[in-house]
């Protein structure tokens, strides 16, 4: 009985994952087209541009990498920059690991490939809403595959027809990502600690947003997390104090 239901639950998790990602697909589309368009006016050939989307598959490092290659930067600079820009993925993987650690190796290899800002946001939110689902990883797969194919499609569109869509950036389609992230974050702000951590990270990320290589973002996240941890410590100490007062006669 359970076995006959399993394929259906997998499929339904997969479809739900893709469906939960729809606003992100819309939000990423203009960036895919813009990336493809930029490749056409760079020294990078069309197939190499598509190769970047297929193999690197990380929007911000693709933009920065393309810029550095166009500026004839040394490959070492490109690689070092790529590593720094992508460091936030380590945090995503560590956050998701408790849900994924028991999966077979090939699953973890595949989900690693598909991990992006958007897929992390959608998958983590889904795990948070309904933790411990047997086929929860299929939700992440659906989200990741949708995001991956979407990025390939819009990169190709930009490579082939990019010059015919000027002003794509001013449409504001990227606001779909902002709206989704707000819808994910606000319900998680259930205590003062998370509010303080989020406000710290947000205001510092804004103050530092012109730091190179997304370092401002990374530093803002570290500061926000530090504030959260610090406030958690105080809470633990208060808890102990309360415990002491209870045993007092």
């Amino acid at each position: 009985m359970q076995n006959s239901d399993a394929p259906l639950s997998r499929l339904s998790e997969c479809v739900t994952g893709a469906r939960d990602t729809i606003p992100m697909l819309i939000g990423a589309a203009p960036f895919g087209v813009i990336f493809g368009t930029l490749v056409t006016v760079s020294p990078v050939s069309l197939w190499q541009g598509q190769l970047m989307s297929l193999a690197v598959y990380a929007g911000s490092s693709q933009f920065i990498g393309l810029g550095l290659i166009s500026a004839q930067a040394s490959f070492l600079v490109v690689w070092a920059t790529t590593l720094i820009v992508n460091l936030r993925h380590v945090l995503y993987a560590a956050t998701l690991l408790p849900h994924l650690r028991r999966l077979p190796t090939r699953w973890r290899l595949l989900l690693g490939l598909l991990l992006t800002d958007e897929v992390f946001a959608v998958s983590h939110a889904s795990q948070r809403r309904q933790p411990g689902r047997t086929f929860g990883h299929w939700h992440m797969l659906g989200s990741g595959v949708a995001m991956y194919l979407n990025w390939q499609f819009w990169t190709l569109a930009g490579l082939l027809f990019g010059s015919e869509f000027p002003g794509l950036q001013s449409l504001g389609l990227d606001f779909a990502m902002v709206a989704t992230f707000i819808a994910i974050v606000v319900p998680q702000l259930t205590n003062l600690r998370s509010v303080a951590a989020a406000l710290t990270a947000g205001s510092l990320a804004f103050a530092w947003h012109d730091w190179p290589y997304k370092l401002g973002l990374l530093a803002a996240v570290v500061a926000g997390v530090a504030v959260g941890v610090l406030l958690s410590r105080n809470r633990n100490r208060d808890g102990e104090l309360a415990g002491h007062s209870e045993v007092r006669p």
Partner: peptide, 23 residues
């Protein structure tokens, strides 16, 4: 350019998958 992109891909994948691989 090909090998530069190849290295970018390898490093990006490393940041995404290394922690997951430790399992």
């Amino acid at each position: 350019t090909f090998w530069t992109i190849f290295g970018m891909a390898a490093l990006t994948y490393l940041t995404k998958a290394l922690v997951l691989m430790l399992g």
